[in-house]
Design a protein around this nucleic acid. Structure first.
Length: 501
RNA sequence: GGUGACGUGACCGAGUGGCUAGGUAGAGGUCUGCAAAACCUCCUACAGCGGUUCGAAUCCGCUCGUCACCUCCA
């Protein structure tokens, strides 16, 4: 399985050739959504990027196990409130069972991911379903001397961990002393912590808290970062290949995950390669819930938000995201989305051109096809160069357009295909289709309205009938029958119905 | 304050020191009943100032500007 795929690793701050721990198997974990509200388009970037990554790894022949969690418990609103988590809060506000809130948003998320062309993960574990595993992880951390119980809660002892030489902050390039100097000390619950850097592994649930589980330390709920450490270990092992997430999760979330895994019996950084996708921006500013400058995925498809005035289709959004490299910010605007829409359609039109590239009968193929073959092969190989260079989908898309221009040129004058060998052409068209559809995951999105087309056809039917052109009338009837449509001539005029055969 | 990014043409967005990224928009042309699509040609760049180099968008320094993380966040 020789290939030159290299990936940028946040942990080493370098691009390195990708080497699976246990080829041909590859384990990928992506931090999934917290299902307490609807996702916005910024939240879609990670899933789309890692969908392309897992698709490409599979294309390269690896057997991928892709795990993306659902967080339905445990993320605190902030340390300043009474320790109620987001889902509880939403459930209380809407008078719902907390799991009902989680389920509704999880279902919506799944629908959105599907239309965005993201294949479902192989395993989608929920935090609430892995309380036992999380409790066990906490116990291991305590046993290893890096966690302590205080007032029914359990905290991770960052100074002790760091003193043991484990390098807290190595992922995000942070120094414990500086973090201490810059930390705020006016946060609620702080009095229980030995150090302001310590973070909760288990939080005691107060009387109001709806989501609660029994534990050796009393009734409570798991800390923010624990689920990913526990669930990735359960499904991918103590050490696996790739862990992904948004750049804003790097600290503290991923830093804490690594600390937890190192401090548990896993004694690992969880993943060999840590990948972080950059943010979507609006006028240069990060799209975020707290800033309020976000467009929900529903609003994106529906149109009419203050940021995007028009609706944009799921595939337009996907193409838009893939036109930028995942480690760059990407700025969203109507103008940018419209440009993406046209680019996407151009790429789709390209798919329809592929099958037409056939040398006309009777045309002699040129004896020496070396020059044209070499040119086409170069363009074909260019498409992989981008992907292999840290999943640079922007370069890949650009190369596909270059290849497409060539295809369109041939399509305009099929006789010029004589300059090419059959093999080079097939290689190029196969690559184009595979990269667009299988790897980038861009599918044709039919724009035509079937009923409108049908009405149009029935208009021609009526004309033919009036002209007593019964040959044409029968032809239209037969063609529609093929589609499961029967034409009905009634006194009121021409109508149609679905065939009941 | 600490840490880390980034400033590319009308817009978005790639760029490994030397070879036109690409998409959208704009201009001209081919094709065409009209149009669209497609193809060909063209146009507007590398924040500023220095430096290293035969050569810098790409390396170094300074200045200006923008942003991110340090608090939940993809």
């Amino acid at each position: 399985m020789q290939h030159p795929l290299s990936l940028y690793n946040t942990l080493t701050r370098r691009k390195d050739a990708f080497q699976p721990l246990h080829a041909p198997f590859v384990g990928v974990y992506l931090c999934g959504p917290t299902v307490y509200s609807e996702a916005h388009i910024g939240n879609a970037r990670g899933p789309v990027v890692f969908d392309v990554l897992t698709r490409y790894l599979r294309y390269l022949g690896y057997t991928v196990r892709y795990v993306r969690n659902i967080t339905d418990v445990g993320h605190l609103e902030s340390d300043a409130d009474e320790g109620e988590d987001k889902i509880s809060r939403m459930a209380r506000a809407r008078q719902l069972e907390p799991m009902q809130v989680a389920e509704q948003f999880a279902n919506l998320y799944h629908r959105h991911m599907e239309v965005l062309g993201c294949l479902p993960p192989d395993i989608e574990p929920r935090a609430s379903g892995h309380i036992t595993e999380q409790i066990q992880l906490i116990q291991e951390i305590i046993d290893n001397g890096f966690g302590y119980e205080a007032g029914g809660s359990v905290y991770f002892d960052v100074p002790a961990y760091n003193a043991a030489g484990r390098g807290y902050g190595k992922l995000s390039n942070r120094v414990v002393e500086e973090l201490l100097a810059g930390s705020r000390d006016n946060l609620a619950g702080q009095e229980e912590k030995r150090s302001p850097l310590d973070f909760a592994l288990w939080k005691k649930a107060d009387a109001r808290h709806l989501m609660r589980w029994p534990s050796p330390w009393g009734e409570g709920f798991p800390g923010w970062h624990l689920e990913c450490s526990a669930m990735s270990r359960k499904y991918l092992g103590a050490e696996f290949d790739i862990h992904g997430g948004g750049l804003d999760l790097m600290f503290p979330h991923h830093e804490c995950e690594i600390a937890q895994s190192q401090a548990s019996h896993s004694h690992s950084d969880e993943a060999r390669v840590w990948m972080h996708n950059n943010m979507i921006t609006v006028n240069g500013q990060k799209m975020s819930k707290s800033l309020g400058n976000f467009v929900t995925i529903s609003d994106l498809f529906r149109g009419g938000s203050s940021i995007l005035t028009q609706p944009y289709s799921p595939m337009t959004a996907r193409f838009f995201l893939l036109q930028a490299h995942y480690r760059s910010t990407v700025d969203v605007s109507d103008e940018a989305m419209q440009a993406a829409r046209k680019g996407y359609r151009k790429l789709m039109n390209g798919l329809r051109v592929l099958d037409k590239l056939v040398l006309p009968e009777g045309t002699e193929r040129t004896a020496d096809t070396a020059a044209a073959d070499a040119e086409l092969r170069k363009l074909t190989q260019d498409c992989f160069a981008g992907l292999n260079d840290d999943l640079n989908t922007a370069r890949c898309v650009a190369s596909l357009f270059n290849l497409l221009r060539k295809f369109n040129g041939y399509a305009a004058n099929l006789a010029t295909l004589a300059q090419l060998s059959e093999a080079a052409l097939t290689e190029a068209t196969t690559t184009y289709r595979a990269l667009v559809e299988e790897v980038l995951g861009l599918q044709d999105e039919p724009r035509a309205n079937v009923e409108d087309l049908l009405t149009l056809t029935l208009g021609f039917y009526q004309e033919a009938k009036t002209a007593k052109d019964y040959g044409k009338v029968d032809a239209i009837r037969a063609a529609l029958k093929e589609q499961g449509i029967v034409v009905k001539d009634t006194k009121a005029g021409v109508d149609w119905a679905y065939s009941e055969e």
